[in-house]
Simulated scan of single mutants.
Amino acid sequence: MTTAAESVLRVEKGLADPEELAAITAVLLARAAAQPADAPAAPRGRNTAGWRRLERTPGFRAPHSWQG
């Protein structure tokens, strides 16, 4: 039978002491508590891509074109 502590964290590589697991748990809980749950989303910037979509460009460009 597994305890609650064994099902919350899993050590992938190496051996972790109970003190190390308690320390990382405290850090993770402190970080989660520091960020408000209803924080407004960061502004996204512009809605259009900063690069050209090649499928929307004409197939031929003149050799003296500045776009090529």
Rank of each mutant, 00 (worst) to 15 (best):
T48L: 13
A41I: 11
V11A: 09
P18W: 02
A16M: 08
L21R: 04
G50L: 09
R44M: 14
D17A: 09
R61W: 01
Q35A: 09
E19R: 14
R46Y: 03
R61K: 08
P18L: 03
P63K: 08
V27H: 06
G45W: 03
L15V: 10
R52K: 14
D38W: 08
P36A: 05
D17V: 07
G59E: 12
L54S: 13
L21M: 02
L29I: 08
A16L: 05
P58S: 09
R46V: 14
A42H: 01
A33G: 08
A22G: 07
R61H: 04
N47Q: 15
W51A: 12
A49V: 06
R52Q: 10
T57Q: 15
E12P: 06
A37G: 01
T2H: 08
S7D: 12
N47C: 13
A34E: 11
V8Y: 02
L29M: 12
A30P: 08
P40Q: 06
A30M: 05
R10I: 08
P63R: 12
E12M: 12
E55H: 04
S65W: 01
P58I: 02
E20I: 02
S7L: 06
T2S: 15
A41Q: 00
S7W: 01
P43A: 15
Q67A: 15
L15P: 01
R56P: 00
V27M: 10
G14L: 04
T57V: 14
A49Q: 05
T25I: 05
A23V: 10
Q67S: 15
G45D: 04
A39D: 00
S7Y: 02
A34G: 09
N47M: 15
R44Y: 11
M1W: 10
L29S: 10
L28T: 03
E6D: 13
L15C: 02
